[in-house]
């Protein structure tokens, strides 16, 4: 197969960047999108050019590194798929394919298609942990959890932190990611002690990173490779409102009858 690849080239975070078009030929339909880019890079290097920088690690859909917007959709046209799991047979022979980095102020472009997603790590650090004691481990089944709840928590936990939700969102909002992280810990009894602190500080961190606000478009869920449901955004809203409006601000405050 033959493709015309229109790809974003940007030397570093200061560079203004622009699109360049390249032609790749003799690509088998069973080549993954990343392998196609590898082929393009070999061709570029042979001709003395700079290879296109892009991130990848696992190449099996679990690490969330292979971030790029392909023809206007995060990770390309196939739902529930990361770029590494996208194959060239999903495209028409001879097609022009536009490839751009995630576009979000909170994810600055480092080079070409590589963006810095450490804003997500800082949201995680702000509250994405549970307290465990370091003494002898308890019997694993000593904390009963309803199987449905465990499954629901696992659904949220399947978020790989790729950032496609932010890339896809017309507002570049990080609500789907943050809600997945808040919910996966908050749903489990192990995560309960930090529950209130978690939602407040993760949301505060998210806001501080410069993401946009959620307008409930649902675009994030549609483009999330793990199909994380926007129901977790609803849960996050509820947790946050509860923590902010209904929970006691100062549980040890004084009262007076007069």
């Amino acid at each position: 197969m033959k493709f015309n690849i229109k790809v974003w080239r940007q030397a570093n975070s200061k560079d203004s960047g622009k699109f360049e078009s390249y032609t790749v030929d003799n690509i088998s339909g069973d080549t993954s999108f990343l392998e196609m880019l590898d082929a393009l890079n070999i061709q570029l290097t042979k001709n003395g050019g700079d290879p296109v920088a892009f991130d990848s690690d696992c190449r099996e859909g679990v690490c969330g590194m292979c971030s790029m917007v392909i023809d206007g959709q995060a990770h390309g046209p196939k739902p529930a798929t990361t770029t590494c799991q996208l194959y060239m047979r999903h495209f028409q022979d001879g097609a022009e394919i536009t490839v751009e980095p995630w576009r979000a102020t909170a994810f600055p472009v480092v080079r070409d298609l590589v963006v810095d997603r450490s804003a997500f790590d800082r949201i995680m650090q702000a509250g994405g942990y549970v307290t465990v004691h370091s003494g002898p481990k308890p019997e694993p089944n000593s904390i009963p959890i309803e199987p449905e709840v465990a499954e629901e928590a696992l659904d949220a936990a399947s978020c790989i932190g790729c950032g496609a939700c932010v890339a896809a969102c017309p507002n570049a909002s990080a609500m789907l990611y943050t809600s997945a992280k808040v919910s996966h810990l908050g749903l489990l009894p192990q995560g309960d002690p930090e529950r209130k602190h978690r939602v407040l500080s993760m949301v505060e961190q998210m806001e501080g990173e410069g993401f946009g606000s959620c307008r409930n478009y649902g675009e994030c869920e549609a483009q999330c490779p793990k199909e994380i449901s926007i129901k977790f955004i609803g849960m996050l809203n509820r947790e946050y409102l509860q923590a902010n409006l209904l929970d006691q601000a100062n549980p040890r405050g004084k009262m007076s009858p007069q």
Binding site: D71, G72, R103, Y217, A222
Partner: peptide
């Protein structure tokens, strides 16, 4: 204020954009 926050959150627009779920009334 929310719109201002959101437009600051993406300063460079995509060259190509396809919505799969965001409905026109929402947009």
């Amino acid at each position: 204020q929310l719109s201002t926050q959101s437009s600051a959150a993406r300063k460079t627009a995509y060259a190509s954009r396809k919505y799969s779920r965001a409905t026109p009334p929402a947009r």
